[in-house]
Nucleic acid binder design. Structure first.
Lengths: 410, 410
DNA sequence: ACTTCTTTTTTCGAGCATTGAAAATAATGC
DNA sequence: GCATTATTTTCAATGCTCGAAAAAAGAAGT
């Protein structure tokens, strides 16, 4: 219902966006190919492309493209002009901050990584921290200063409804600080905050073409448990939507102690610290370990795979928590695919029997059948890819769609 | 990403749809008022309205509208032409079928009600049953035969992914029968199937203007437990979406026996039969009562309100089930309003302490705070209103938007 | 070397919907 | 009867899309 009036201007915007989308999705294309991809006529394609070219957003590829096709006038491919824009992407994690500079073509230009400790943001204001890294990065690529259009930040935690801040975060001293707004004002650039789980979903969409238009729930299992969802290829809403607090969905009332301070969350059974706790029969009300070395987690999996009973039991409990979580989710949102990513993805087979059983015990699971559950090991790739594509898409659609047509090229 | 090409035709469609929407939402309006409501210019308004008038979709009101305003040329109000279209709305319930004939103005023209028994659809094919009622209804209003454009059916249960049939339904012998397709072919009209819970959400939107653009979860509590959701005023998707299986979300693994045959569903603790079972200390694995007389349910509430311990306990269990269900839902979908409707809405105060406690025990509930939970007693009103508005909206946007402009009135 | 063929891209005129401004319309108030 | 006021229509301009035809740019054939 939130529709707006259409006029010839919005028509042009829409179709420009369509062309840019097609280019994002399929890469360098000829005008003819773009016309058939978007459904626009060749004539309109020429007009729109001429606009985009004069504005410097796309460029014709000079490199020969020996496509095998030989006859006829050779097609000239167009693609994004890499230096038309840049974006700075922050990925804030509990123990690491990563800043990447990317260009309009989606190519990684430079990257800075910094370790974080629980006291990092007690010592320096988040906005200042981010601003410092950004200065350092831009000092190494001065050309990007003028074309930097957006700053995007991936965070963990619960966002404000307006998406401008964090209400809660596992990253210490980050919640409550209005760093997005501050940084935006300091730099005069739009700064967007993205929940990590949501980017997971966005990234999964881009990394697997089969998922691009599907309804997917992407679950991260590792030091935390998180989930992002897409709905028929869409991630709804501008703000926090598409992200969930799956890891902090209640599994057992008044159950195991979670890192968030609550009790009985799925995370408190399925995150690495929880598996560790259960494998060593530590009481489930014992405070979670601050960090679990990857090696230790890995060793637990090996022990379980080789039949160790307490380790197996711990992974069974994790599977049960995830299984009931998914079963409960299915009552509200029924995706066609479920993706498990992160360190815990390797343990999927250890958990699968319990997951399947939990889903089968629910009405939706028994009638619609269990959705396909696939494991992808690496989670940093979808998160970065998600942040990248989301930000480039924002530039395409928000920044570069409504630009006034300076002059029509005849 | 599922966007399509824009051209002048789609612009006209969009703006026509906008005008019809405004009319649906605000009722009879002058052209000037519609222009400012939609954001269209007066000139376009004249053109579009002239189209709609010549096509007979709207009509100018002749009745004097002494608005109090006196000066200036009096506005001529336009509104839907009631006889421009009709729709047949079926509401299929476990023990009742209701068929309503409505006109394009949204006015109820006629209605037929029929009792259903568990064996009704064993004796007569659902398509035949519906067709018979429809014939009976149209016999009483022959004028509607020519203008009948759509048949919409409200059902309970789990729909196929394509929305063309039922996979499972509490209404006996209904699942599996392709009655929507059959009826559509027999009548040559589009037949749409709508899940009851979804209509509940749609109806709630229309009955309370404050909820029209909000994110609302509407929960029905009575003989079953169901929920429909809206997301910023939108009900996504064309099919089953916006509907949930909240009532069959697992509450306690391997818990109380539900009418659906599974165990531990929320419904098995919070529906009328469950409260009854618990109030009388019947084992929770005992088969659910087929139907609970309204009177008996009412009496239970009175007993609980006057302090009866076993009745109070039963409502506490119901509140706990709903509370944990809501708490778990909040991890995935966080609405701004929660509406409780149906017979159980009257028991909200009996259940509220347990509901609040369950929500407070979750991370999202404790950080975002519990959403406002409001009770509305009657549920048939939102369901019918939802079916009505959804169907009229379909006629507006699908049937009457893409019509070729026969001739421009100059 | 020149012509023919094929495919891509641009040009051109037509059609359509929107808009702002001006004109026409239809009452009220004096 | 005339000025005032608010609504509605008319008009010319603008901008976008589209289909068809023309132009462009090579490859293949003779």
């Amino acid at each position: 219902m939130t529709r707006t009036v259409s006029d010839s201007d919005s028509v042009r915007r829409q179709n420009r966006g369509l062309v840019l989308s097609a280019l994002r999705m399929q890469g360098a294309q000829s005008r003819t190919a773009l016309a058939s991809l978007t459904g626009l006529s060749h004539a309109s394609m020429t007009a729109i492309m001429s606009d985009l070219l004069t504005q410097g957003l796309v460029a014709e590829l000079t490199a020969d493209r020996p496509d095998g096709r030989t006859r006829g006038r050779p097609a000239t491919f167009v693609n994004f002009a890499r230096k038309a824009a840049h974006a700075a992407l922050f990925e804030l994690d509990v123990n690491r901050a990563r800043l990447s500079l990317i260009d309009y073509g989606g190519v990684l230009v430079d990257r800075i990584e910094t370790d974080l400790t629980p006291t990092t943001f007690a010592g320096i204001a988040p906005c200042q921290f981010l601003s410092d890294r950004l200065d350092a990065l831009l000092a190494r690529t001065p050309a990007a200063k003028k074309t930097l259009r957006r700053i995007a930040i991936s965070v963990q935690g619960i966002l404000e409804r307006d998406g401008r801040g964090l209400r809660w975060s596992p990253i210490q001293h980050l919640a409550g600080a209005p760093f997005a707004t501050e940084l935006s004002e300091a730099r005069g650039l739009p700064v967007t905050l993205h929940k990590r789980g949501r980017l997971l979903a966005e990234g999964a969409r881009w990394l697997d073409p089969a998922l691009h238009e599907a309804s997917v729930a992407t679950v991260f299992v590792g030091s935390t448990v998180a989930m992002g969802v897409t709905f028929r290829g869409q991630i709804m809403g501008r703000g926090d939507e598409g992200a969930t607090e799956f890891g902090h969905m209640n599994h057992v009332p008044n159950g195991a102690l979670c890192r968030c301070g609550m009790r009985g969350c799925i995370e408190a059974y399925a995150a690495d610290y929880a598996v560790l706790r259960n494998a060593y029969s530590v009481p489930e009300t014992a405070p979670p370990a601050p960090a679990v070395p990857a090696q230790q987690y890995e060793m637990l999996m090996q022990r379980a795979e080789s039949g160790d009973r307490s380790a197996t039991h711990a992974f069974n409990l994790a599977g049960r928590a995830i299984g009931f979580g998914l079963s409960r989710m299915l009552a509200i949102y029924d995706p066609s695919h479920i993706l498990i990513v992160g360190p815990g993805a390797r343990a999927l087979e250890l958990m699968r029997p319990e997951i399947d059983q939990a889903i089968k015990a629910s009405l939706v699971g028994s009638i619609n059948g269990a959705p396909h559950i696939i494991a992808h090991r690496d989670e940093t790739e979808p998160i970065f890819k998600g942040l990248l594509m989301k930000t480039l898409n924002d530039i395409d659609q928000v920044d570069f769609a409504p630009l006034p047509t300076s002059e029509r090229a005849g």
